[in-house]
Design a protein around this nucleic acid. Structure first.
Lengths: 249, 249
DNA sequence: CTAGGTTCACCTCAGATCGAGTAAGACTCA
DNA sequence: TGAGTCTTACTCGATCTGAGGTGAACCTAG
């Protein structure tokens, strides 16, 4: 960072060529299961293995690179209404020497929450991409198993104290749909009554539209009231996961 | 990430030379005030301005680069017992084009919590480094104002649900010292009685040494019991900041 | 040596919140 | 029509919270 010490101590061998890539952990919920977007690698290294979508950063902000990669891999383009509601945040940066066998690659990972998106359509990069339930997304290329694990933990934690869960559902949703998001991400059932009470008691989490669903649930039940996301950025009080003693130590 | 598409779409103009640096937001508490380690820049750009300590990543893990930079800037070396107790975690990566006027620089920022360290001694890089109360650390070089702000928010949040506060004090400490850490980082006084009750009620946060301080507080009071950090990695229940409505929206 | 102020370690109390359970009513499916 | 499902609302006891109080230990000023 300091030009003088940079020039004084500069040795090309100390600073081998570094490439910066952006990888995306894109999560969505399909059929009540938490799924991640994966691509099939066509070239070495790790040919045939699955990996997180990603690519080299160009002369653009890192966030923009993540959106671009997500757009290219899903075949969806910003401006068509699909990618607008995607929540995107930086996850972590991975830069161990040797994590890419070709060269020094520093990878900035992003975490994305998407409402249920259509299966990526054939054509361009997107043909190689598909949604996979997270528990089946193992044995990924590079250090992507670790990246995915970090992303899942971040997602589970985010749901506790931010309204990010609304990014997984449409603009209008029922409390039951929101509960299914929490159940899918946390991997455990939630008490419907308590969840209902807590969501409505958090100021700014959801606001009523005054409407209800056209019909009851698929397997019966009354018409549910519809809500949209409120203006809160943090949940007070938070919706805490059922305590798991093994997470604590 | 994919070699085929990499080679097919490769254009040197798309991928200008990228440098990867590591910057550190090192926090400590001196005289009850939260302080950050800054360096005085000697060269252009931003000559004479203050900046966060940092430098170019070498062929090493990013974490190791952060430790190395911190060691070089403070004059303390790992293995002498000073840097061992420093808590270090990755904060965020900053990569906007133009954030460094010389070239494309992607900077991985780290956050460090240190117990009260001696003032960096003269010699080598460390002569330019000193601790500054965070509220006086303004008008920094590059985008370091933003990095510092992100680091402070992360630190305040970390104290809520992890035992990181113990990284700011010695191996043995009193509940009162721990409370002063929270007060300094959060910038508000805490109810001593409630804080005492909550800290002791969180399993694994602190464990008693059975000892007490040799004498009472500086301005009187009984001898305080001594504690050391427990084995918890997360605090359940968490020590939440007093709710601030303006943080929520 | 004493008085006064400070600090630690408990304790109490009222209100909020939590998990768990119950129940009424609306609705779908067979 | 009957069985089962789902939303919404309520209750209850246990727990947690913030606010405040008490007493003993301790330092310092006078």
């Amino acid at each position: 960072m300091d030009e003088a010490s940079f020039l004084a101590g500069y040795d090309p061998r100390d600073y081998p060529a570094v490439a910066v890539t952006v990888d995306v952990v894109a999560l969505t919920i399909r059929d009540g299961r938490l799924c991640v977007l994966l691509v099939e690698r066509g070239a070495q290294p790790f040919a045939g293995r699955r990996a997180l979508p990603g690519g080299f950063a160009r002369d653009e902000p890192l966030d923009a690179a993540a959106i671009r990669e997500l757009s290219e891999e899903t075949g969806l383009t910003p401006g068509e209404g699909h990618l607008e509601r995607v929540h995107l945040e930086q996850l972590k940066t991975y830069g161990d020497p040797g994590r890419d066998p070709r060269m020094r690659v520093v990878s900035v990972a992003y975490l994305a929450f998407a409402p249920s998106l259509p299966e990526p359509t054939a054509g361009s990069d997107a043909a190689r991409a598909y949604w996979v339930p997270v528990e089946e997304a193992t044995d990924l290329a590079f250090d992507h198993d670790e990246v995915l694990a970090d992303g899942l933990e971040r997602a589970r934690s985010k749901l506790e104290y931010t309204p990010s869960a609304t990014a997984f559902v449409g603009t209008e949703f029922t409390i039951g749909e929101l509960r299914q998001v929490y159940a899918a991400v946390w991997g455990e059932e939630l008490h419907a009554g308590n969840f209902h009470r807590k969501v409505l008691s958090v100021p700014g989490f959801v606001e009523s539209t005054g409407e209800t669903t056209a019909r009851g649930g698929e397997r019966g039940g009354p018409k549910a009231k519809l809500y949209r996301a409120g203006d809160a950025r943090l949940l007070h009080p938070a919706l805490l996961r059922p305590t798991r003693e093994d997470r604590v130590r």
